[in-house]
Structures are given as C-alpha cells and as structure tokens.
C-alpha cells in the first residue's frame, strides 16, 4: 500500500512568535498513501506545524514542501492539492448540508454537474438523505464532523490534514469516522492527523510525538512500543510527555 513517493518533507522547520519557539526545527517525511499520526500534548506545537504546512502561516526558518510545492513561495499552489479540517468546526452553519458540499466542491474546481453527482453520492453514503436540506447548524456534532471530513476530501486532494477531527464525539461515531479515513487512504489520499486519543494513534501507519515544539519520537506504533518498553501507545505518550517543560 505504501509507495516510496513522499508527499510532505520538512527539514528543520521552525516557527517563532517573538521569543517563543512554537515549532523547533522539526524534520520528517510523509509517504503517499500513509496515515501519519501527529501527536503531542496541548501546546506542543502540532496545530502551528499543521497550519504552516497548509499555507495558513509563514514559517520562520527551515524548509518544507507539501505535494511538491514549497511552503514559502508556492503556498497558493499547495492549497489546490490539500484538504483541511480544522479543530473548530468550520462549515457554514447557516447553509444546508447540500449547499456546503456545493460551495466547497465548487471552489475546488468541480463542475456543477460533478457537484450534483458527487453531492448525491456523498449524501447517500453518509445516510443523510433526510437531512440534506437541513441547516448544518441544526445537526449533532458527530454528523457535522463526518460532513466536514467528506467535504474536505470531495475534490480528491493528495493530502488531507485533520486537526483533532474526533474531539468530543462518541466512540461509535469515532469508529465510523476512522472507517471513512481508511476508505480515503484506499482511494489514494494521504492522511495527516492530530489526535489526543491513543487508540486512534494505534490506527496510524506511523506516529510522531511532539514535545515542547520538537519531534521526540517517530516510528510505527509497534516499534515505538518496543523502543519505550511498554505495551500501549498511552505508555509511550506518557513517558515522552512527562519530559515536557512547557505548561499548557
């Protein structure tokens, strides 16, 4: 399943806000088709790093390319090839499910005809035939997250960035959400995901753990468990996160 093509590379990528170094010289690669887990305590710098890779924030120093484009100069080209789902739910609550799909699909270049087909298809797969014409604001959180993810990958991006996509939803919905993530990788989309749930970390192909702005560990879940001599990802995470000096 994993190819040798790399879709994200960073080298000593750094972001400082004044004296504060939010992201400190991180270096890693993400392969095409991978599910790459990006873990770390609150305030470790995950969201900042992700925002740089999405072209929302300028880095201070270091290098990075996403989908082959440079984050300094080609940040607008990056945007055509990625999907992004932020921590904060960010579909338009005063538009219906169908209207949201239409808008986001449309600005990623889908034709009106494609939008109609893909939209119907998506609504059917999500089992939301009845809710398609309802305002998104009136739906439960778990559903919103699923719609949000589906619209983020509607245009078949190379990479999708998910920032704590399952925060605050029930275990059944989380499980369904991960089924959707697997489906997406099957269709060739690389998934870059941050999470606080250690069971979800186990679902990733490779996991990096950030502590105080730097990457302290990066490997497959199994190798990490061997390396830190515990039998769960939770154990790995606790061992690393305890070294953190930064408060929340």
């Amino acid at each position: 399943m994993l190819s040798q093509e790399t879709v994200i590379t960073t080298h000593n990528l750094t972001k400082s806000f004044g004296d504060f170094t939010a992201v400190n010289a991180i270096t890693f690669e993400v392969k095409a088709g991978e599910i790459f887990g990006f873990l770390g305590a609150n305030g470790a710098g995950k969201t900042t790093a992700m925002r740089i890779l999405c072209g929302l924030l300028s880095p201070t120093s270091g290098e990075a390319t996403v989908a082959g484009f440079d984050v300094y100069k080609e940040n607008e080209s990056i945007k055509k090839h990625i999907g992004y789902m932020s921590q904060k739910f960010s579909l338009f609550e005063d538009l219906t499910v169908r209207e949201n799909i239409e808008f986001f699909g449309g600005i990623y270049g889908l034709s009106r005809k494609e939008l109609k087909e893909k939209g119907n298809d998506l609504i059917q797969r999500l089992g939301m035939g009845k809710e398609a014409e309802k305002l998104v604001g009136s739906l439960p959180l778990g559903w919103k997250q699923k719609i949000s993810f589906s619209t983020a990958i509607l245009h078949q991006p190379k990479i999708v960035f998910l920032d704590e996509p399952t925060g605050g939803v029930d275990p059944i919905t989380r499980r369904q959400f991960w089924d959707m993530i697997y489906e997406a990788t099957d269709s060739g989309i690389t998934v870059f995901v941050t999470t606080h749930y250690m069971d979800e970390a186990e679902y990733c192909n490779r996991v990096s753990i950030m502590v105080d702005g730097s990457i302290s560990a990066l490997d497959t879940p199994n190798n990490l468990k061997h390396q830190f001599d515990t039998d769960s990802m939770e154990g790995v995470f606790l061992k690393l996160a305890r070294q953190a000096k930064r408060g929340e």
Binding site: E76, K79, K88, L91
Partner: peptide, 14 residues
C-alpha cells in the same frame, strides 16, 4: 469568529 474564514483561507480562493 466562527472560524469559517480559516477554512476559506486554505482553499484556492484568491
């Protein structure tokens, strides 16, 4: 405030 502008900013909208 709602955060939707960030979602727009990651799209190719000029």
């Amino acid at each position: 405030e709602k955060g939707t502008i960030e979602q727009i900013n990651v799209t190719p909208i000029k």
